[in-house]
Design a protein around this nucleic acid. Structure first.
Length: 628
RNA sequence: GCCGACGUAGCUCAACGGCAGAGCGUCUGAUUUGUAAUCAGAUGGUUGGAGGUUCAACUCCUCUCGUCGGCUCCA
C-alpha cells in the first residue's frame, strides 16, 4: 500500500513533519523519494514526489525487521557490554545479528534480551541518523574491530550512523522513526556463524529472530513453523516406519524399511517405464572404479573435497563413485558410433557416495550415499535444441506425476572458472535459453552459477507449504566428451565430438522421497502409498473372507493388508487412519454374506458397500493418472 | 569440519548427587466387538560409549560417537 503525497512546499520541513501534516504519521515509517527509501527524519526534497512507505510494503517489512535487529543489538550491548557488534541484517521472516562474545548466549540469555527489547520498544526511543567521515566514524567505535573492518571496506568518504538511545551502529539504514514502531517479534535461536561467512574467520554467535508488522502475522508464521515440524520427514519416517539412519550403519547412510522401500520401488518402476518410452536405454555401472578414471574426468581436480578417500586394492587405487557420468561415457565409447545412432540416451538409477561434512547432514535431504535418477545423452550439435526442448517436457511430466506443478526455473550461465571453448558455452547457453522460451516457461538467470563444464537449467519444485526444493537439473557438457574423446562418425566420414547432456529429474531418490513425505505429510497419493487398502474384519468370524479380499486385491496388483488382530473395529480404523492408508475396507457379517466391502477413505469419508470388483475399478480409476 | 543445544525401555517423555519411572508398543489371558484407543496381568534399561570426581553419578568433569539448530557447500 502506497500513499501518494504532495511534493514538499516548505524548505527545511522533514518528511515526518510532512507526514503529520498529511495525517500519515501513524502509518508511514519511511518514504520513497525518487528510487531510494529514506528515513522520515530527512528533509522533504524539493520538487521530488514522495511516496509513504508503510510496514506492510515489502520495503516497509524490511525496515521493521532491520530496525528490530538494532533494537536487539542495543539490548545485547546493555546486558553484555563486552559483546562486540558486527552486522545484523533483515532476512526472510525476520533478522539476525552476529556478536563476538566470550561465552555464547544461553536460552535464558535470549529471554532476558527479549525482555529488554520489549522495554526499549515501550520506551519508544527515536532512531537518530547521523553522518560522519570515515575518519570520525572510526573514533566513534572504540574497541569494535569489526566495525573498523567494515569501515575500511566502505568506498564512500561519508558514512551514516544510527543512534538508538546509547546504542550507536554503523548502518546504511533506513530505519523506523522510533523503536515504538517495531512490530511483533520473537527471538528464536542462537547459532554459530563465521565472520563474513568464511570458515577461515572467527566464529561469531548469531541470534536469529522473527519479526512482522503485526502480532497476527507473527502468530501465523509460528503456526507455519509448527506445521513444518509436523511434516518433518524424519518424524513421519519414524512414525510410518519408512526409513532410518542409525549410528551403527553410519551418518548420512539410509536404511529403507519395507514401507519406504515400497514407495521407492513404485517411484523407480514409474521412472524406468517412462524412460523406456522416451527412448532411453537402461544401464548399470559399478560403485567403484580406478582413481585414474576420475583423474581423466576432472573430478580429482575439481571435486576432490566431496569424494571419499581412495581404496587400496592390490596396490591400485580405486574410488567410490561420486558421479555416474564416466561410466556412461565408457559404455558410449565401447564401440564406434555413427551420426545415425545419435542421440544415445543412457539412464541409470546410480547410487553415488559423496563426502559431506558431518554438520551438513540432514535426514534424507542431505546424505552421504544416494541414488540419482541419472541419465547421459550423447548428441550431435544440431540435435541440441530439440533434445533440450523435449527434455523439459519430459521433466515437467515426471514432476507433475508426483504432484508438483509449481516450480521456479533457473538458467545458470558460465562461471569465472570454466573449461572448454567460449563458442561452445555460447552455443549451449543459447540452446537452453531457446528451449525455455519456446516452452514459454518463465525463468531467472543465475549469472556465473553454471558447472565448470557447462551451463545448466535447474528446476526448483514448490511443495504444499510453498517451500522450494532443488531437484531437477539439466546440464550441457562439452568438456567430458573432450576429456574422454567421445565422438561419432559424421556424414562426412570424419570423427566429430559428441555433446553430452547430464540430467536428473528427481535429483536424488532419497531427497525426492523426503520432499514427497513433507509435501504429502506422509499421506501419499494412492499410486504411491505403501499400503493402499487395509482390510478390517469386524470380528474374527470374518477373517476368512477378509483374507480372500486381500488376496483378490493383491492379485489385481494392489497393495493390501489385513488386520486380523483381536481388537474392536474402532481400534483398527484408528490405526489404519494414523498410518495414512488411503482406504480401510470394513468387512462384517453383512459384507461377508453379500461378498462386499464397505470402504472408508483416509479422511473419514464412508462409501457405500460394494463388491470387490467395483472397488478395484475405483482404485484403477484413481491411479491411472497417478498424482492426485 | 566449525559454534551451540541435546542423547534415559522399540516409540514419546519423567526422574537432575541418594532404590531408574510413566504412557504407548510387545507378550499372555479374558472379551467377539460396526468406522479414531476393551479390560487385566506380564515383559522391557551396562541411562550412546570410554575414563574421571564422589561414600554414592542418569545427574558433576574430560574425551569420544551420534542427533538437532546454524555457518559453508550441494542432489
Amino acid at each position: 500500500m502506497i500513499f501518494p503525497a504532495g511534493a514538499g512546499d516548505e524548505d527545511g520541513m522533514t518528511l515526518l513533519e510532512m507526514a503529520k501534516r498529511d495525517g500519515k504519521a501513524k502509518v508511514a515509517i519511511a518514504a520513497r523519494v525518487g528510487g531510494a527509501v529514506v528515513d522520515l527524519a530527512r528533509n522533504v526534497p524539493e520538487g521530488a514526489p514522495v511516496q509513504w512507505v508503510v510496514p506492510t510494503d515489502p520495503d516497509g517489512v524490511e525496515i521493521v525487521r532491520h530496525s528490530t535487529a538494532h533494537v536487539m543489538a542495543a539490548a545485547v550491548k546493555e546486558l553484555f557490554p563486552n559483546a562486540l557488534i558486527t552486522i545484523g541484517p533483515a532476512i526472510e521472516n525476520g533478522f539476525y545479528y552476529d556478536f563476538d562474545v566470550e561465552e555464547p548466549f544461553t536460552p535464558e540469555d535470549l529471554v532476558r534480551i527479549e525482555d529488554r527489547m520489549r522495554e526499549i520498544v515501550s520506551a519508544d526511543i527515536p532512531f537518530v541518523r547521523e553522518e560522519a567521515t570515515k575518519e570520525q566514524a572510526r573514533a566513534m567505535f572504540p574497541g569494535e574491530p569489526y566495525k573498523e573492518e567494515l569501515l575500511a571496506d566502505i568506498p564512500d568518504e561519508t558514512v551514516s550512523l544510527y543512534r538508538l538511545g546509547n546504542f550507536l551502529d554503523l548502518c546504511r539504514g533506513p530505519h523506523l522513526p522510533s523503536s515504538g514502531r517495531a512490530g511483533a517479534f520473537k527471538l528464536m535461536s542462537t547459532a554459530g556463524a563465521y565472520w563474513r561467512g568464511d570458515s577461515k574467520n572467527r566464529m561469531l554467535t548469531r541470534i536469529y529472530g522473527v519479526a512482522f508488522p503485526t502480532r497476527k502475522e507473527l502468530d501465523e508464521h509460528l503456526r507455519i513453523l509448527e506445521e513444518i515440524k509436523k511434516r518433518d520427514h524424519r518424524k513421519i519416517g519414524k512414525e510410518l516406519d519408512l526409513f532410518s539412519v542409525t549410528d551403527e550403519i553410519g551418518p548420512g547412510l539410509i536404511l529403507w524399511h519395507p514401507k519406504g522401500a515400497t514407495v521407492r520401488r513404485v517411484m523407480e518402476d514409474f521412472w524406468r517405464e517412462e524412460h523406456a518410452k522416451a527412448g532411453y536405454e537402461h544401464v548399470f555401472s559399478p560403485h567403484i572404479a580406478r582413481l585414474d578414471l576420475w583423474r581423466v574426468s576432472g573430478h580429482v581436480d575439481y571435486y576432490r573435497q566431496s569424494m571419499f578417500s581412495p581404496i587400496d586394492i592390490e596396490g591400485q587405487e580405486y574410488q567410490l563413485k561420486p558421479m555416474n557420468c564416466p561410466f556412461h561415457i565408457q559404455i558410449y565409447k565401447s564401440r564406434m558410433r555413427s551420426y545415425r545412432d545419435l542421440p544415445v540416451r543412457y539412464a541409470e538409477l546410480g547410487t553415488v557416495y559423496r563426502y559431506e561434512p558431518s554438520g551438513t547432514l540432514h535426514g534424507l535431504l542431505r546424505v552421504r550415499g544416494f541414488t540419482q535418477d541419472d541419465a547421459h545423452l550423447f548428441l550431435r550439435p544440431d540435435q541440441l535444441d530439440d533434445e533440450i526442448f523435449s527434455l523439459l517436457d519430459f521433466t515437467l511430466f515426471v514432476l507433475r506425476a508426483f504432484g508438483f506443478d509449481r516450480y521456479d526455473i533457473y538458467l545458470s550461465t558460465r562461471p569465472e572458472k570454466y573449461a572448454g571453448a567460449l563458442a561452445h558455452w555460447e552455443l549451449a547457453e543459447a540452446a537452453l535459453r531457446k528451449a525455455l522460451e519456446r516452452k514459454g516457461l518463465p525463468f531467472e538467470v543465475d549469472p556465473g552459477e553454471g558447472v565448470f563444464y557447462g551451463p545448466k537449467i535447474d528446476i526448483k519444485i514448490k511443495d504444499m507449504l510453498g517451500r522450494s526444493w532443488q531437484c531437477s537439473t539439466i546440464q550441457v557438457d562439452f568438456n567430458n566428451p573432450e576429456r574422454f574423446d567421445a565422438s561419432y562418425i559424421g556424414e562426412d566420414g570424419a570423427a566429430h565430438r559428441a555433446i553430452m547432456i547430464h540430467r536428473a529429474l528427481m535429483g536424488s531418490l532419497e531427497r525426492f522421497f523426503g520432499v514427497l513425505v513433507e509435501h504429502y505429510a506422509g499421506a501419499f497419493p494412492l499410486w504411491l502409498a505403501p499400503v493402499q487398502a487395509d482390510v478390517l474384519p469386524v470380528t474374527e468370524r470374518q477373517n476368512d473372507f477378509a483374507r480372500e479380499v486381500v488376496a483378490r486385491l493383491k492379485a489385481a496388483g494392489f497393495r493390501a493388508e489385513g488386520d486380523y488382530r483381536n481388537e474392536k473395529l474402532g481400534y483398527k480404523v484408528r490405526e489404519s487412519q494414523l498410518s495414512k492408508v488411503p482406504y480401510a475396507l470394513v468387512v462384517g457379517e453383512r459384507e461377508a454374506a453379500q461378498q462386499r466391502v464397505t470402504p472408508r477413505r483416509r479422511g473419514g469419508e464412508q462409501l457405500p458397500p460394494m463388491g470387490v470388483e467395483a472397488f478395484l475399478d475405483m482404485l484403477r480409476g484413481e491411479t491411472v493418472n497417478r498424482a492426485k
